[in-house]
Amino acid sequence: MKIQYKSRNLEISDAMKEYFSKKMAKLERLVNDEDGEVEVRFSKLRQLYTVEVTLKMRSIIVRAEEKTKDFYASVDSAINNLERRLKRFKDRFRTLKREKAGEEATISAEAEGSEKEKIVKVKKFELRPMSVEEAMMQLDLLDHEFFMFRNVEDDQVNVLYRRKDGNYGLIVPR
């Protein structure tokens, strides 16, 4: 697995890289993809260390982010978060595979730790063509976390979302 390191406001030492790769080695048993890529971003803002880990495999992308006052605690939390998400994905994948094969899944809610997630609401609405600025205004008016719209410039469906830092992000299909 290829690991790519990036940093902002922080010098990455060899000890930091070695610590991260040692922690990442325990995830390799969950990841069967030799061609997988890991992108790690280390940053420091004031007294908080942020570790963002993005694992890109053939079929999925898994991301974890942690902020703490200790660099090593941030790495540990991010890796644990990534491991938990990968295990959940593998469990769901196995369950879906069993159901497709005609077998019934016999995993109890107690053994799983939580109830199976399900879609509880479906909302349909018309995608009106609008500019990104109009979508930003609409997002603020609705006070939602994201807003889907048809972009006037390229006539494609875009998703505008509010980031944790208060700015906006735009998801555009290729």
Rank of each mutant, 00 (worst) to 15 (best):
Arg128Asn: 12
Ala111Thr: 12
Ile171His: 08
Leu48Asn: 15
Glu103Val: 08
Glu134Arg: 11
Lys118Ala: 10
Glu37Pro: 04
Phe146Pro: 01
Phe89Gln: 12
Lys44Val: 11
Ser43Val: 01
Leu170Lys: 03
Met1His: 07
Arg94Thr: 10
Gly102Leu: 09
Met16Ala: 09
Tyr5Ile: 09
Lys67Pro: 03
Met148Gly: 04
Ile107Met: 10
Leu48Asp: 14
Ala101Asn: 13
Lys116Tyr: 02
Tyr19His: 14
Phe149Arg: 10
Leu96Gly: 09
Asp14Glu: 15
Glu133Phe: 02
Leu55Pro: 00
Thr68Met: 02
Leu96His: 11
Glu145Cys: 05
Lys123Cys: 10
Glu104His: 12
Glu133Ser: 10
Asn158Ser: 13
Glu103Cys: 05
Met137His: 12
Glu37Gln: 12
Leu86Ile: 12
Val152Ile: 14
Lys97Ser: 11
Val159Pro: 01
Val172Ala: 05
Phe93Arg: 14
Arg58Glu: 14
Phe42Gly: 01
Glu52Arg: 07
Asn9Arg: 08
Asp140Lys: 14
Glu134Tyr: 07
Asp155Gly: 04
Lys2Tyr: 08
Glu28Pro: 04
Lys124Thr: 15
Val172Arg: 15
Tyr5His: 13
Leu142Met: 14
Asp165Trp: 08
Phe71Glu: 00
Val40Trp: 01
Tyr5Gln: 04
Phe71His: 05
Glu153Ser: 12
